[in-house]
């Protein structure tokens, strides 16, 4: 059986593909996101994702709120009082952070691990995709995701999330969001290359004085074995609504079963004790 946590060099081979293309992913460089939401629109258009109503959330320019069954890209808007560029002192609400969030396509994906039907599967590109003809809407993947990405559509009963445009990348196209992104904040490609490029970009930013630039989800040593979609952030992850140290729940599964087995033993033992002993009647 494959590993439940930790670094995993070849996810596709681990999932049973003898020969597979390189693992593909997203690098979302939020330092050049302009908050245009073209990614959200392109994703909805290409994937036929239903709208989720006209909501005004009062969260800056963000009226999407969070990733969910009907939002596979979500652009976060954060207004801060921090000095920007050459400014000496912070000014009220002047620093903007914009970031396009997406499914992380984890190396160790909680949703995939817990799916009881085999509806969620690992593609040859190392991504994680729901097979809608198999999903029976049990909902187990929903709380199993440490990032809160996947969700159930109430009217449809099944779960939905980003497929990393499985239909497009199989034909050599880039995913719709990356294609539509006007600044290349969303970059698509082989994960190894993206990671290299991302490290160069952080170095570049830090040497230019943007010392708060950091990568999120790039490390194979993190709690999900590294994300297939990772980010360059300019503040702590939780500021963007991302968990600072996500861990795939299944990491502890072996220990969980051991505890359950011990409890099952106690259960039977107490039964024996109740019926055994002195008074047989």
């Amino acid at each position: 059986m494959s590993r439940l946590s930790g670094p995993e060099h070849d996810v596709a081979r681990d999932a049973g593909y003898d020969e597979a293309p390189p693992r593909m992913g997203f690098f979302t460089d939020t330092s050049i996101c302009i908050g245009c939401k073209a990614c959200e629109v392109a994703c909805k258009e290409w994937n036929g994702v239903p709208d989720d109503g006209y909501n005004l959330l009062g969260m800056s320019f963000d009226n999407t709120g969070m990733l969910g069954a009907n939002s596979w890209r979500h652009v976060a808007f954060i207004e801060q009082s921090k000095p920007v560029g050459q400014q000496e002192s912070p000014r009220e609400g002047v620093r903007w952070l914009m970031a396009s969030d997406v499914c992380k396509h984890c190396t160790h994906a909680g949703c995939l691990d817990v799916c009881p039907t085999g509806s969620l599967f690992r593609t040859e590109f190392g991504t994680v995709v729901v097979q809608e003809d198999i999903c029976n809407g049990c909902g187990y993947c929903v709380p199993a995701c440490p990032y809160g990405v996947i969700d159930r559509r109430p009217d449809d009963g099944r779960v939905w999330k980003c497929t990393l445009c499985y239909d497009r990348i199989g034909d050599g196209l880039e995913p719709a969001c990356a294609k539509a992104c006007p600044t290349d904040s969303i970059q698509f490609g082989p994960l190894d290359e993206l990671r290299e490029r991302a490290h160069d970009r952080v170095d570049e930013l830090v040497s230019a004085g943007v010392t708060e630039a950091r990568l999120y989800g790039d490390s194979p040593d993190d709690g999900v074995g590294g994300a297939g979609a990772f980010f360059l952030l300019l503040d702590e992850p939780e500021v963007y609504g991302l968990p600072p140290d996500p861990v795939v729940p299944t990491r502890d599964l072996v220990s969980m079963w051991k505890h359950a087995a011990a409890a099952a033993g106690v259960f039977l033992g107490l039964g024996l004790a109740a019926f055994g002993g002195r008074n047989r009647r």
Partner: peptide, 11 residues
């Protein structure tokens, strides 16, 4: 992020 939950509530 605006007090929004990080993980999804069980459905």
């Amino acid at each position: 992020y605006y007090g929004r939950p990080v993980v999804k509530k069980p459905v």
